[in-house]
Amino acid sequence: MNLFDYTRADTLGAAVGAEGALLAGGTNLLDLMKIGVATPSRLVDVTRLPLSQIEDHGGGLRIGAMVRNADLARHPQVLARFPAVAEALLSGASAQLRNAATTGGNVMQSTRCSYFMDPLSPCNRREPGTGCSAIGGETRNHAILGWTSGCIATHPSDLCVALAAFDAVVEIAGPAGTREVPMATFHPLPDANGVPPALAAGEVITHIRLPDPGGMARHARYVKLRERTSFAFAIVSAAAGIAVQDNRIVAARLALGGVAARPWRSTGAEAALLGQPPIETNFARAAELALQGAAPSGNNAAKIVLARRIAVRALTLAAAGTPDRMPALPASVFEGDDHG
């Protein structure tokens, strides 16, 4: 790890516009510094920023960027209104990491593409214009949607998939003022030479806002397929929400994880569900739409099938209703049959 200057920003004013890499929980940034992928000359510690509140926001929630993942996952209002967010959080990493990692840090975490994480491999995402080493390499975990010849990496977050599904908005403070971006489009997709940054220099994520979920509050699920039962990144995952009246879907949300450089929200799939009965054939058609345009970026064609199926599963489970469990459990593909 290179030497750096360490400073702490105790107020938002001090953090906005500060030069250097923002250090929050450190679970991603310090890791990248240890392996030589991130080499900041200055660290700005933002853990003391007064952004650790979870507030009511007109039936929805406004979550401070410094709220720790573990605190978010066990917050009563998150469990009550956004159970899929709790499930997504608990499906990620480990209890130790969730105690350290922050909401803003989770949104800003880097891809787990092994070529991005290997400083010896050329990588457009690390250094625009140098090429993509993943193409033609080991690509079992790489993108099937939204990729280009410039980058086939995926975003690894579980949380962001659920946030994107439920219309979360990212609130950003910058030297030029504040702005808002929907979670679903916050992470830029790659172009032919790399990936534009999500935040401009000096910008800081301050809050994540989730609007009122309406009838979806008790019909929201997150499902994750992974190689280990726990403590593993997703092969594919899905967050879904459904509201039903008179056996007709009146609201639907669907986002996929592990498939693209951002959580893959499919408004097309959601629209196709409206007015339909909540049955598997309709979910399958929606999943088909969600995967429209999917293409393997290497030896990962199976992910297209898996993504389609996990979308169906998430919608099916959402339609069945969120189980009343306190606290939430991580979403297991086994759950519902052998226990729980």
Binding site: G26, D31, L43, D45, A70, Q96, L97, N99, A100
Partner: peptide, 23 residues
């Protein structure tokens, strides 16, 4: 040393964390 095994788990202000990823 990268938060992937838990051998360094300590309590920081009562919460379990990986000391290896705590600056």
């Amino acid at each position: 040393d990268r938060g992937q095994c838990g051998a360094c788990t300590v309590l920081i202000d009562g919460r379990r964390m990986n000391a290896c990823l705590a600056l």
